[in-house]
Simulated assay, not measured.
Amino acid sequence: MRITFWSLLFVFVGSFQTSAQNDYYFPAKAEAWETVSTSDYNINNGQLQKAVDFAKANEYSGSRDLRIAILKGFEREPFHEILGPTKKRGGPAGMILKNGYKIAEWGDTKRVDMTFSVTKIFLSTVAGLAVDQGLIASENDRVGNYVWDGTFRGKHNEQITWAHLLQQNSDWSGELWGIKDWADRPPREGDIDDWKNRKLNTPGTVMEYNDVRVNVLAYSLLQVWRKPVPQVLKENLMDKIDASTTWRWFGYKDAWTTVDGLQMKSVTGGGHSGAGLFISTEDIARFGLLFLNDGKWNEEQIISKDWIERAITPSEPNVNYGYMWWLNKKGPRHWEQVSESIYYGAGFGGNFIIVDRDNDVVIVTRWLEPSKVKEFMQTLVKAF
């Protein structure tokens, strides 16, 4: 085989172009987010625009006054009330990043809005940071070995590990901040007395979506870090990814505890009684880009790749759920015709952050009718 100068040059140039296309861009703080032409990545611009138009045309049907939307959405819960801050929302908004570069956006991406259960993946990450830094030796440790104030007292609760709380299969029993675990998302049918007096499931065997137990995780992490969870997130992650100063993380009005003689607010992992994370589309996109790049921002490893892999590993009771990340595996929540490597955070009202590792893409879409997200993604992936 004869190797010529031109053939070597062709190989070099081709390798350089491939390498350049695999490089990630990390926007600096407060700078204009760089865009890139869709033709640089062989993206079908018409199909991309079709997905954007779909997101804009399918706004969440609930009230823009989120206090009204929350009370309506959870009216079947006994004793349900608003216990934390709420905020009227904006219209549909979103961003799509390719290798960190912006290839599409719609709506007001700087507007700060509630994110509801998207908050959970931020809380999960605070747990991951605790494991990375050795504050928690292993997520398979029993939480009662770290939190000794009675929160995990009793034959059932003492079995619960950090992993059980992260996977929402702990079946923790009790009351926190005035809300009993059985009053959060009870069955739609049957007698409430039968539900609250039922036999508890062995931790790790049955997943049940329950914000009281998520808030128990937030409270437990506050005890471990010995400082407010929003401060932990800011210092250990958000400042390092050059997030804005506009995001806030709230707790319920009476969710105060004392640590080292100081009064501290314990935050929530969602917003269905108010509170949770209030954040802009752009700051969520930065968080997603960090995960797309295996926990590394520029040259700094902020959260370990090992933790991320464990966080997106299916739990035994639910193949579509890891450490508070939803997983697009074949199961009840599978999006057909979309990669099974995709994982995402999802919140009330149609808040989504989606990480597509196959295509090096991060998608943030807000106030999309929740039932339409699968169709949105099936439309979008055709662009790549």
Rank of each mutant, 00 (worst) to 15 (best):
N45T: 15
G46S: 10
G46Q: 14
G46D: 15
Q47D: 08
Q47S: 14
Q47E: 13
L48K: 05
Q49P: 13
K50S: 15
A51R: 08
V52Y: 02
V52G: 01
D53I: 06
D53V: 09
F54T: 04
F54S: 03
F54W: 05
F54D: 05
A55S: 15
A55P: 11
A55E: 01
K56Q: 10
A57Q: 14
N58E: 15
N58I: 00
N58W: 08
Y60W: 15
Y60S: 10
S61A: 14
S61M: 12
S63W: 03
S63F: 12
D65T: 09
L66Q: 02
L66F: 02
L66A: 02
I68P: 00
K72Q: 12
K72L: 14
G73L: 05
E75Q: 08
E77G: 04
E77Q: 15
P78K: 05
P78R: 04
P78F: 12
F79R: 14
F79W: 00
F79D: 11
F79E: 13
F79I: 02
F79P: 04
H80I: 06
H80P: 03
H80F: 01
E81Y: 06
E81W: 09
E81K: 13
L83Y: 07
L83K: 11
G84F: 02
G84L: 07
G84P: 05
G84Q: 05
P85N: 13
T86I: 11
T86M: 14
T86E: 03
K87E: 12
K87L: 15
K88M: 13
K88V: 12
K88W: 06
R89F: 00
G90F: 03
G90R: 06
G91E: 10
G91F: 08
P92S: 10
A93T: 10
M95L: 11
I96F: 12
I96K: 08
I96E: 01
N99A: 02
N99P: 04
N99K: 15
G100F: 09
K102T: 09
K102P: 05
K102F: 02
I103P: 05
A104L: 07
A104S: 13
E105L: 00
W106V: 12
G107K: 03
G107I: 01
D108R: 09
D108Y: 07
D108I: 07
D108V: 13
T109F: 08
T109W: 10
T109A: 10
K110T: 13
R111D: 13
R111Q: 15
V112D: 06
D113Q: 07
D113C: 05
D113E: 12
M114W: 01
T115A: 05
F116Q: 07
V118I: 11
V118E: 01
V118D: 03
K120H: 06
K120P: 00
K120L: 09
I121Y: 07
F122V: 11
F122N: 08
F122T: 12
F122I: 13
L123E: 09
L123M: 08
S124F: 11
T125Y: 04
T125H: 14
A127D: 03
A127S: 06
A127L: 10
G128L: 02
G128E: 09
L129P: 02
A130H: 02
A130F: 01
V131R: 06
D132Y: 05
D132P: 06
Q133L: 12
Q133R: 09
Q133W: 06
G134D: 02
G134H: 03
